[in-house]
């Protein structure tokens, strides 16, 4: 059976403690939360950290979903299952429930965390697309304090984020606007599989027109956060099937997938369009109270 290479284990008891440990142990230290991304990579010896800092004791400090005023704040240690089951979250951001239903499997969702998913930054990882679509920002804390970055700035590319050595992601913040809706669609080969492709959409209505709309894509190429032409195409437009098709085509035009065992590049490009259309349709329906 596959086993990780040797490492030293530390357990952090607070965010400050975790940051102090990272500072002391240096860049050979890695944080582990749910572990479902990192530990398999360690077993394959694709990751061989010298130190592992277990932050599961931070679940009480960083495990929360707070809907406050015009913002939702979600702690980085919030487990997938909590994101799935939170009615408060589903009421304002149904996209989370859409996505969480199809992220990994129920047992993995018991352990995996929001922060772990975002920091892994796998190009096929769903929550990055979700957070992008809803215009989330990320709170990163280090010894010198906190900084807040947009998803666009957070996500630097495959497996690369704005979190620097000695820092950790502590919270995700999402603005809540009235007359908004969001939705997520994913195609997977089988339950629990990574996405062949997926798309998340969020819209805010102003009367009969879309005041603001965003789409986040997953598994169809790097750097597909904040696709500006999509937002431009949606802004000020009345929702219609023609509009969705136009925007879907923009998504497809921006997609740069590669052919692999999950699917051909042509198919994934098609899905970028198809799933963008479906997500937009549902997001608008939700925003306009039709669902």
């Amino acid at each position: 059976m596959q086993v990780p290479a040797p490492f030293e284990y530390e357990r952090a008891t607070s965010v400050d403690h975790a940051i102090a440990l990272m500072e002391r142990l240096g860049d050979e230290a890695r944080l582990v939360a749910g572990g479902h991304s990192l530990i398999p990579m360690m077993k394959l010896r694709l990751a061989t950290p010298e130190y592992l800092i277990d932050i599961n004791d931070l679940a009480s400090e960083l495990g929360y979903i707070r809907v406050e005023g015009d913002e939702v704040r979600i702690g980085a240690m919030t487990r997938h299952r909590e994101l799935l089951e939170s009615n408060d979250l589903a009421a304002v951001l149904p996209i989370f429930r859409d996505a969480e239903k199809v992220i990994a499997d129920p047992v993995v969702r018991n352990r995996g965390t929001l922060g772990g998913s975002l920091c892994q930054a796998d190009p096929s990882e769903d929550l990055s697309a979700v957070c992008d679509a809803i215009g989330a920002s990320c709170v990163i804390r280090g010894r010198s304090g906190e900084r807040v970055v947009s998803m666009h700035d957070f996500h630097r590319g495959p497996y690369e984020t704005a979190v620097a050595d000695g820092e950790m992601l502590t919270e995700v913040r999402v603005p809540i606007r009235p007359h908004s809706g969001s939705a997520y669609h994913k195609v997977e080969r089988r339950a629990g599989d990574w996405a062949v492709a997926s798309a998340g959409a969020a819209v805010t209505m102003d009367g009969d027109v879309i005041a603001d709309g965003r789409v986040g894509l997953c598994a169809v190429g790097p750097n597909l956060t904040n696709i500006e032409p999509i937002s431009a195409a949606l802004s000020g437009q009345a929702p219609s099937e023609d509009l969705y098709a136009t925007v879907g085509q923009i998504a497809a035009d921006n997609a740069t997938p590669s052919t692999d065992t999950r699917g051909t590049a042509a198919y994934k490009t098609h899905l970028a369009k198809e799933l963008t259309i479906r997500s937009l349709r549902k997001a608008v329906a939700r925003a306009t109270g039709q669902e």
Binding site: H36, V107, R111
Partner: peptide
Amino acid sequence: DTSNCGTCVVWVDDEPVKSCTTLAA
């Protein structure tokens, strides 16, 4: 080995987890 099959599921604090992808520590 990759937490895909669930054969190794045990409970930790009343929740099923995949014990091949959890450290004893």
